[in-house]
């Protein structure tokens, strides 16, 4: 057994030892119940099968891995909409499913004031996933207190980021799924960014790009160009939307600092 295999075995043992035991979880509101479910997803570094039995007898089983909710397992609980039922057919959940997942979880939590929960480890390969959805994104889509409210464009973090960059912005493009639209800029600068998005960026940000999920959830990509270009480029992701901007000057450190302050709540 090499070092890496030893580490994996240690982590797996640790995950098993720290696993939640079957037992009731009580909550005072649906949001508290949802938070308790998402906590279990957030600690599932290695693959886990999570099962919940709610007060009204409804059962939900799912798989989480890499701190993401990867898939919902059949059979679905009764009383779901067609959109929610479709979630159980997914091989892996994707960012587009976040809102439906949040509504599903909220509905289940509202059926009572508690659930019994079990968690068991998945076998080898349970930790290797590309898809799945981030528990923070589910929490935000549900509009939990303390999180950005859903349905406000690209989110308050992005709005603050753009506001902070405003004097330096040359052009901004918003990518939502397959669609992209120019939201700021004109002339050559706008054409430059639109051309870049269409000719290179969309190809890079394909489903095969391993960092796409993290970028879309809440990530930042900065391209430092040669000094003679006098600008750098930014791609900031939030809840599935991608903001692409060309920014005057080459001070990428200042841009990263601003992103940390506005989108991460980090004063550093």
């Amino acid at each position: 057994m090499n070092d890496f295999e030893r580490l994996k075995a240690m982590l797996r043992r640790s995950a098993r030892d720290g696993m939640a035991r079957p037992g009731p979880v009580r909550y005072a509101s649906w949001s508290e119940g949802l938070a308790r479910i998402l906590e279990q997803v957030d600690v599932a570094v290695l693959g886990r099968r999570l099962s919940f039995e709610f007060d009204d007898g409804s059962r939900l089983a799912c798989e989480a891995s890499g701190r993401r909710l990867v898939r919902l397992l059949t059979p679905p609980p009764p009383g779901l909409t067609a959109e929610q039922m479709a979630l159980f057919d997914r091989d892996e959940l994707a960012f587009d499913d976040v809102r439906a997942v949040s509504v599903l979880f909220r509905g289940l939590c509202e059926r009572g004031a508690g659930f019994a929960m079990t968690a068991e480890p998945l076998g080898e390969g349970g930790g290797q996933v590309r898809g799945g959805v981030d528990p923070t994104a589910i929490s935000e889509a549900a509009g939990l207190p303390g999180e950005a409210s859903p349905g406000r464009g690209e989110g308050t973090g992005h709005e603050a980021l753009l506001e902070g960059l405003r004097p330096l912005l040359q052009a901004v493009v918003l990518i939502q799924g397959a669609d992209s639209s120019l939201v700021l800029g004109e002339g050559d600068e706008a054409a430059f960014v639109v051309d870049w998005v269409e000719s290179s960026l969309k190809e890079l940000l394909s489903p095969g790009f391993p960092l796409l999920g993290t970028l879309e959830t809440n990530g930042l990509l900065v391209f430092a160009l040669p000094e003679r270009s006098g600008r750098h480029l930014l791609v900031a992701g939030r809840r599935g939307n991608l903001l692409v901007a060309a920014i005057k000057h080459c001070d990428v450190e200042a841009t990263v600092d601003l992103w940390r302050r506005t989108c991460q709540g980090n004063p550093a």
Binding site: S199, S200, L201, L204, T217, L220, L221, A224, L233, W259
Partner: peptide, 23 residues
């Protein structure tokens, strides 16, 4: 390779790419 090849062609080669996330 993918990131450093994805810059705008007319600006010259991308010098560095930074990818940041909360983790």
């Amino acid at each position: 390779a993918d990131l450093l090849a994805s810059g705008p062609k007319r600006e010259g080669p991308v010098e560095h790419v930074l990818f940041l996330s909360p983790t």
